[in-house]
């Protein structure tokens, strides 16, 4: 996995709450058997008109947000289905950071598996960030994962919380499976005990 340390980028604003994974990547695009190529379908139903042209009313189609790697969005982002196609599409489109006041659990977990940093802001912090972008579209934020700090030109930055193990894995770009397999002896041991305690599961 791509290590994540410090990033500076344009922050795009999506002032909507409860953005669900059905919108992030509509189900007609879930039939592929590969992991890549979902970015062109990100927010499909909002992003494109019936005839396939860009919907210029959709916020991410604003020229100012074109090269954004940071997405600032409303509360309860990523609710709904567990599809990992949602973070795949977000990453493939080019975002590596999301800032919101809360996320749905499964989506939040899925982000870390795909080198996307989901930053949790308080409602007030989020509101100031949104105001800052709205007043100055194209503004660049700096995300420093090592120091758990977001900085913005207008001074709306803050220190954010993140689980230490997740932070470590992200900074090092460690693959979860490899990490777990360092505990293979413990897993074997557990399984032996499990067979004794719950023999019916192994019958």
């Amino acid at each position: 996995m791509e290590p994540y340390k410090k990033h500076e980028s344009i922050a795009a604003l999506m002032n909507r709450s409860n953005v669900d994974t059905d919108q992030i990547i509509p189900k007609q695009f879930l039939k592929k058997v590969e992991r890549t190529g979902f970015g062109i379908h990100l927010f499909h139903d909002w992003r494109f008109n019936e005839d396939g042209s860009d919907n210029t009313d959709f916020e991410l189609n604003k020229p100012a947000f074109k090269d954004a790697h940071i997405l600032v969005a409303g509360d309860n982002f990523g609710c709904g289905s567990s599809r990992e196609h949602a973070p795949w599409a977000i990453a493939d489109y080019g975002f590596n950071t999301i800032i919101s006041s809360s996320y749905a659990d499964i989506f939040y977990n899925n982000c870390f598996k795909n080198s996307i940093l989901p930053i949790i802001a308080t409602k007030e912090q989020l509101a100031s960030l949104m105001d800052e972008i709205a007043a100055n579209e194209g503004v660049r934020f700096v995300v420093d994962l090592e120091n758990q700090e977001l900085t913005t030109p207008a001074g709306n930055g803050f220190k954010f919380e993140i689980d230490p193990s997740r932070k470590e894995n992200m900074i090092k770009g460690l693959d979860d499976i490899g990490l777990t397999l360092t505990h293979i002896a413990e897993i074997d041991q557990y399984e032996e005990k499990h067979k004794q305690s719950y023999p019916w599961l192994w019958a």
């Binding site: 992991r35 567990s82 598996k113 777990t180």
Partner: peptide, 13 residues
């Protein structure tokens, strides 16, 4: 529910 990376993780470990 889990994501696809986790599906892989559970299959392997």
């Amino acid at each position: 529910g889990i994501g696809t990376s986790e599906v892989e993780h559970v299959m392997a470990t």
